[in-house]
């Protein structure tokens, strides 16, 4: 592989069982540096599980995962160190309610990256600036809107300068009028060259920001390609049915 098309995420033959439930049935996913991959699919198709396997919040039953050259499933890998390179943004924000916005952003900087408080505060403040919330540093999550909370959550990830960011339905819990501000931040992240894997139903965003759309169904990647191809002329019946369904909504 040429250096400029170096895969930063290389997941192969990922299987995941929850007891008797076979949730991922051999998923291969390769993501190039600076690529934005959009993952869509019906509820229960395994999108979240796939994302959570990539940073090993979920232990895959089998398969291999390389992220930035690190073997995520090797028992000798320092998983806490590896996870710093993989940002994750959750549907429900999961901000720490007992800390300020700045406290949320600096916790891992101090405890994992080992920065001094002053240095962490400086980096944290810069991260909040990037999501347009420099003036909210002292607010607690309870004092912020949903959109602002999600942007703080994004700042919490980017402060660690990850090589990849995973987004699991980042705007699904938001009131419609707050969605735009979060997508705006994601767009600017993309422009700064961040590699991103996004599970979302925001098809408008997928159309004009994604390099590739991946359609999952029943634990498998059924079809993938450029947004225009997947949305206008899907080849598989299941993809067509799914796209038709969401476009009717």
């Amino acid at each position: 592989m040429a250096p400029d098309t170096q895969a930063i995420v290389d997941a192969r033959a990922i299987h995941k069982h929850f007891g008797a439930l076979h949730v991922l049935k051999g998923v291969d996913l390769k993501v190039a540096e600076r690529e934005l991959v959009f993952v869509i699919g019906p509820s229960g198709s395994g999108k979240s599980t796939l994302l959570r396997c990539l940073n090993r919040l979920e232990e895959p039953s089998s398969g291999s995962i390389l992220v930035d050259g690190i073997d995520m499933l090797d028992a000798r890998t320092d998983i806490n160190h590896a996870r710093q390179r993989i940002g994750m943004v959750f549907q429900s924000f999961n901000l720490y309610p007992h800390m300020t916005a700045l406290g949320n952003v600096t916790l891992a900087l101090r405890k994992v990256a080992g920065k001094s408080r002053a240095e962490a505060d400086r980096l944290g403040q810069a991260a909040l600036e990037r999501v347009g919330l420099a003036d909210r540093a002292g607010h607690t999550p309870g004092q912020l809107s949903g959109g602002q909370q999600q942007r703080v959550a994004i700042a919490r990830s980017i402060a660690l300068e990850p090589r990849v960011m995973l987004f699991d339905e980042p705007t699904s819990a938001l009131d419609p009028e707050l969605v735009g501000s979060v997508l705006e931040v994601m767009r600017s992240l993309r422009e700064s060259g961040m590699t991103m894997i996004v599970v979302s139903h925001e098809m408008g965003f997928a159309r004009n920001a994604a390099d590739r759309v991946v359609f999952m169904d029943d634990g498998l990647i059924v079809e993938q390609g450029p947004p225009a191809a997947i949305f206008e002329s899907p080849t598989h019946e299941r993809t067509r049915a799914f796209i038709g369904q969401i476009q009717r909504h």
Binding site: L57, R83, Y96, L107
Partner: peptide, 30 residues
Amino acid sequence: VPAGQVEAGRSTGLSRLQAMTWIVLPQAVR
């Protein structure tokens, strides 16, 4: 304390013990 709290912490590289100390226990006590 919701499981998502620990997951958020672990996803940034905190160890189990660190997530317990800095994220879970303060909320649990409160």
